[in-house]
Design a binder for these strands. Structure first.
Lengths: 152, 152
DNA sequence: ATAAGTGCAAAAATTTTGCTTGTAA
DNA sequence: TTACAAGCAAAATTTTTGCACTTAT
């Protein structure tokens, strides 16, 4: 079976080598936001000859071709995820460190307009919300007018 | 004269030492988003005995107390800026690497609601837009319906 | 007085690179 | 065949730490 990333590599004219295939597979199957170490560990299971240097070179390459995106998500090391058709948000639980992903297409459009207002064409965006679980009920639609603003 | 950061340090019960005062001053006067090296270089001018280790320890401390915020802004190293009353955006010019800051209070409110919708109380947020100068005119209000979407 | 901060140098952690060998197109 | 990729180990970068000494409270 061929992964989406592999197709993207072909489309970008990248040589499809064993290591790249393995790393592409690992990325495709990753649920969260792996860092380089995780990628290496996993790819290493598919082919123990794969070196850490190759993982670094590969993610850099993939990133340059827009196949991957690098994030930080509050952690020190860089973390990676496949680029989607459109951007999405990350909501990081400050207590657990867990990352929740979700779409918000309207906001993306809004950001596009904001950039345009400053004379820029939006290429990509990163929106990271840091928060903690609200003690009150989860809030159905768009409750709390403006609510108490947390201390920051 | 006493800087805002110094006041914040006092308010947080932090010992006001020479190095901290110098670093606070440097941060107050910084226009952009200095990284640790820059901070050290500048603080070093105020007092040549200040070590890089102290700068690292100090920014970590300030960050823990919410006095400073750490950003990446597309660069590899961490960059710092004072926390403001409210969050603001960063628009990074992909060609020049220059960072433009601006407020967008309504969006902050919107993000607060988005977080609430997922059962979270927003503590802070990072919004980074990456773009390049539009070739057309800077666009006055909210032009280009949806415009050609860059290749990504 | 004393708990906390600092400098220095050493170490850890993260990322890149030089060079030789291997390999996809 | 040949330009590009990989492995390995060494180097470069970025950040943290141990320890003896200093300093703000």
């Amino acid at each position: 079976m061929e992964t989406r990333i592999e197709r993207l590599c072909m489309a970008n004219g990248l040589k499809m080598t064993g290591p790249r295939r393995a790393i592409a597979r690992v990325l495709s199957e990753a649920t969260g936001h792996p860092d380089v170490d995780e990628l290496h560990r996993l790819a290493h299971r598919l082919d123990p000859r794969i070196s850490l240097a190759t993982v670094y070179r590969t993610v850099r390459l993939f990133e340059q071709h827009g196949i991957l995106e690098r994030r930080n998500l509050g952690s020190r090391r860089a973390r990676y995820e496949m680029s989607g058709e459109h951007d999405h948000f990350h909501l990081i639980d400050q207590d657990s460190g867990k990352v929740i992903e979700f779409d918000e297409p309207e906001t993306e459009q809004l950001m596009r307009r904001v950039a345009a207002r400053h004379g820029f064409e939006l290429v990509s965006l990163k929106i990271e919300l840091f928060g903690r679980k609200a003690r009150s009920e989860p809030a159905r639609a768009e409750p709390e007018r403006a609510g108490k603003i947390p201390a920051r």
